[in-house]
Amino acid sequence: MSEGAINRLAAVFAKDRPALIAFVTAGDPTPAATPAILDALVAGGADVIELGMPFTDPMADGPAIQNANIRSLAAGTTTADILSIAAGFRARHPAVPLVLMGYANPMLRRGADWFADALAAAGVDGVICVDIPPEEDDALGPQLRAHGIAPIRLATPTTDAARLPTVLEGAEGFLYYVSVAGITGLQQAAQASIEEAVGRLKAATDLPIAVGFGIRTPKQAAAVARVADAVVVGSAIVEVVAEHGADAPASVTAYIRSLADAVASARNDRIEETGR
């Protein structure tokens, strides 16, 4: 069992400032292009990398990430490629947490034990599986925990107070609040509803709360960072990759930096508010 995994995530959230979690799809536009894009995310100031595993049937994703999945699979991306991208990232960035996000079928294809072993060997810190809810935790959760890899749970606007304990039972790393009942990349939730939800979640758990879905501008990121422990940006980054292809790293770094600066300024605002 490797303690290092959860510690990398814990170290980020121990910094007492909001974190920026940046998502890209592995293998988009090609497996060979992904390492430089991940480096660009780190260079721009991303605190946690969320690496999407492409799937033929991404039913929780909007058009931007659907298309990224299609580009990646068309480029021939395999599970072996993704593990190799993860291992390479871990070697280059020993302290930056790396979380895999995706769907159950590619994760379970060779068995949950195989997958957890492979992720541990690659230095992955956590897994977000869209279609394994707490009710099906035994499909992958025990194997991840046995390797010190955090099963990261999702809470949504439909997760009411009665259900929340079920979601939190066995959750590790951080809690990902999906702020919109819908698919990735479309509208953003109203700030007031995010604030209300984060308050409710914080009252129920000590896990850091990350908020995502529909966040694309520095202003939106800053607003969310004022109340949450982390801001997740996905589709908007994927769109930058789509626009620039293999030349994406410079544009990605510039875009991430604008988000990271905004998130950092939110921390200052938060300190001022606390001081008042």
Partner: peptide, 14 residues
């Protein structure tokens, strides 16, 4: 079988 759906749908499925 089972209930392999996104969290948003779980409350509705239940």
């Amino acid at each position: 079988g089972g209930r392999y759906v996104a969290e948003t749908l779980m409350p509705l499925i239940l």
